[in-house]
Simulated scan of single mutants.
Amino acid sequence: MSQRPVIAAVDGSMESQAAAHWAAREALLRDLPLHIVHAWQDWSPGFTHVPFTGADSASGETTVTRHWAERIPRETAERVRESHPGLRVSVEQILGRPVEVLLAATNKAEVLVLGSRGLGALGGLLAGSVSLPVIAHAECPVVVVRAGEQAEDEKQPQGGPTGRARYLDVVLGLDLTRPCDELIEFAFSAAAARGAALKVVHGWGVPIVFGHDPEAVDPGHGVAMGLREASVLTDALRPWRGKFPEVDVKEQCVVGGAADHLVDASKDASLLVVGRRVRHSAIGPRIGPVTHAVLHRAAAPVAVVRHP
């Protein structure tokens, strides 16, 4: 069994505090340790203008900056330990560029957890220079958590016959043109760990042929294609049902782009899982339009899983 930790990136913000507590809950579900990382850069004149020689050349401003850099992960760890007794928690503060530090951390993490404001297309995630490149190049799954996220938000309002609150569904967005084992396994494992149902959403559309809409000519054409898409989805999930027989799977084929449907499904989800294909782009980090949309608009934490 893997003992790679769940890693939470913290910077002192409310968003990162929510991410740290989500990461703690995830670590307990997976029986893994939690590692809290804070990447800091020293912008004081004494640091930026004096060459590094191995000697202590830090100015008073640098000392203050280092003091706060040490307090952020330490105090976060104290709050997490208090809320989650028994959890194995370690702390690390690293001097360096946050993107580089966090990407290096993904090489040794089971999951990396980040905070996000989720303020829409012109704010939140893309307003910063850290989250997007980390998500676009991470070697491990990355989970993005909104500020204010609470454990209660991930569970049904009322408990079942046992009186214990059950987790809301885990939702998986699946593209059947390139189904990915890593993505599907992550979603099934997340649902199994939570004792939750797994809702699999696949979006499809009737292709336009030579400028004509076949469904407009023959409405039955769209119905037949819908039945075929549903059959392909069932076939793709069949081996995973066998590996995870305890997971209740709900299949949903929807017409049109998947993003809107996934965002809607996230309102009643404990976790939304989407994929991110490995891309080598000369115009900067890219994560795909569906993943980009749900990261900004989803109501639940979003897990982005790298796949070929």
Rank of each mutant, 00 (worst) to 15 (best):
E100S: 11
A187I: 05
A192T: 04
G205R: 14
E110C: 02
A224R: 15
V274Y: 08
P239T: 09
P245E: 07
A55W: 01
A151V: 03
R238T: 14
L183E: 09
L103K: 08
P285I: 12
H292S: 11
V209D: 03
I135Y: 04
L32I: 02
A151H: 11
L174R: 13
P239K: 06
Q156T: 03
A293Y: 11
P51M: 11
T63P: 00
Y167K: 03
L262Y: 04
S131E: 01
L174W: 08
A69V: 07
P51Q: 12
V217H: 07
V80P: 04
L32M: 14
G123M: 03
E70I: 01
L262M: 09
R97D: 15
D31I: 02
V37D: 00
V302M: 07
T234P: 01
V80D: 04
D264Y: 01
G123D: 04
A293K: 13
Q3V: 10
A109C: 08
E82G: 14
A191Y: 04
G54C: 09
P51A: 15
V201P: 00
H38A: 08
L174V: 06
D11P: 01
E182M: 00
G211I: 08
R241Q: 12
Q150A: 13
G256N: 07
S129R: 15
A69W: 05
Q17A: 15
E61I: 10
V247D: 06
G115N: 04
P301D: 07
A39R: 05
H221S: 07
D175I: 06
P45S: 05
H280M: 08
G211K: 05
T63A: 15
T162A: 13
Q93I: 00
V99N: 03
K108H: 14
R97T: 11
L168Y: 01
E75Y: 05
A138Y: 06
I72H: 01
Q156V: 00
W22Y: 15
L125C: 03
A236K: 06
V171D: 11
R164C: 01
R228H: 13
W40F: 14
D181C: 00
D56I: 05
E100V: 09
H21V: 05
A258H: 02
E154K: 13
R166W: 04
S270Q: 14
V50C: 00
E229P: 02
V232N: 07
P33Q: 09
P5N: 07
D175V: 08
R241S: 09
E152I: 00
A303M: 06
H212C: 02
R228I: 03
L32D: 10
A224H: 11
G120W: 03
I287M: 14
I135K: 06
T48P: 02
H292W: 14
F244Y: 12
Q17F: 09
P157I: 00
S83Y: 00
S116E: 07
D153W: 02
E229F: 08
A55T: 15
V171S: 11
V290I: 15
R117A: 14
L28C: 10
S189K: 13
G205W: 08
A258S: 15
L87C: 04
A8Q: 09
A299S: 13
W43M: 11
W22H: 12
P285M: 07
S129K: 03
E26S: 11
R194Q: 14
G54N: 09
F244W: 13
V200K: 10
L176D: 07
E75P: 02
V263A: 12
S270T: 05
R30H: 10
V89N: 07
A192F: 02
